[in-house]
Simulated scan of single mutants.
Amino acid sequence: MNQIINMVTRMVMRRLVNMGINKGIDVAAKRGQGGKELTSEQRQAAGKNAKRAKQAVRMSRRIGRF
């Protein structure tokens, strides 16, 4: 029974951590340049950078498993 509880706890915590990391990347990307409004080009670039950051996080997790 203890193993099942530990497994479920790990699954929930992993999901919460992943959501927190992704949310932080999104907030940092949308933040812009110190309160100035972003142009559409800057917003697109921020979205691409956020996507790359999320990919880098996923890759580092995979590498960390070994």
Rank of each mutant, 00 (worst) to 15 (best):
N22T: 11
N2V: 11
R14N: 15
K48A: 13
M19H: 11
R58M: 08
A53W: 05
R43N: 04
K51T: 10
M13I: 14
G24D: 04
A50V: 00
M19P: 04
R15P: 03
V8G: 05
M59P: 03
Q44R: 10
M59E: 12
I21R: 06
N6M: 04
Q42G: 03
E37P: 09
R62G: 10
F66D: 05
Q33I: 08
K51E: 14
K30P: 05
G32H: 04
S60R: 07
N18W: 13
I25T: 04
M11L: 15
Q33R: 13
E37I: 11
I4Q: 10
R62P: 01
N22Q: 14
S60I: 07
R31V: 13
N49Q: 14
Q42C: 06
A45I: 12
A45G: 11
S40T: 11
N22F: 13
F66C: 03
E37Y: 05
Q55V: 03
N2T: 09
R61E: 01
K51L: 05
K48C: 00
I63L: 04
E41K: 00
M59Y: 04
N18F: 07
S60N: 10
L38W: 09
I21C: 00
Q42K: 03
K54R: 09
G64N: 09
N22V: 02
A46R: 02
R43T: 09
Q55K: 06
V17C: 06
